[in-house]
Design a protein around this nucleic acid. Sequence first.
DNA 1: TTTGTTTTGACAAAAATAGTCAAATTAATT
DNA 2: AATTAATTTGACTATTTTTGTCAAAACAAA
Lengths: 102, 102
Amino acid sequence: METFGDIIKNERENKGLLLRQVASALEIDQAIVSKFERGERKPTKEQVEKFAEFYDLDKNKLITSWLSDQIANTILYEENIGEVLKVAEEKAIYLKTIHDGR
Amino acid sequence: METFGDIIKNERENKGLLLRQVASALEIDQAIVSKFERGERKPTKEQVEKFAEFYDLDKNKLITSWLSDQIANTILYEENIGEVLKVAEEKAIYLKTIHDGR
DNA sequence: TTTGTTTTGACAAAAATAGTCAAATTAATT
DNA sequence: AATTAATTTGACTATTTTTGTCAAAACAAA
């Protein structure tokens, strides 16, 4: 179960980089990068994309990880997690067909 | 595909109530109730619970509808909707086991 | 102990969300 | 068609949430 934070932390360590270096390359405060790695704060989508580029990761996979973190957090303390997600998927697909004008 | 707004609008109309009446009973501005019904604004969880009580609806079902609306909206324009939700479910379940101290 | 790195927390800035209200629009009634 | 009633819209303010900044504390390594 690898969260967004886990991923970017592993990448950084594998590449032997310091927080300071990543922070300066991405123009994000080092304290915030640290918080991202530990899941204490949620990056914006733009920041996720920056990380993907910087670490040369598949952008979609990283966004999936980040989005799923967010969703997991919003439903964490709810009943019927499975049901909520099933309905959410139906709605999303339905709304998408409408949006695409079908 | 019934959204939260659809549900509370149908309930109100079935019971032959005016926005004004619902608004006053729930102590929510009538303009906002109108916006809830049309999905223009998202209620808080407390407001969802008020609606459930007022219309005598199953609270969990209404919360499911409201939560799934939210989730559907956050993933609407993403790729891999199914994948995101699958991962989100795994994470949620995993986090829950941790939270419950297992 | 000194130096380097990461984490923490207080604070300010910015953005997103929520509530209020009156006017505009739409629908129903006479 | 005119009047009355109901709903919707939009501008505005208030509140809450999120984000960024910075320095000091904690931790780790040399």
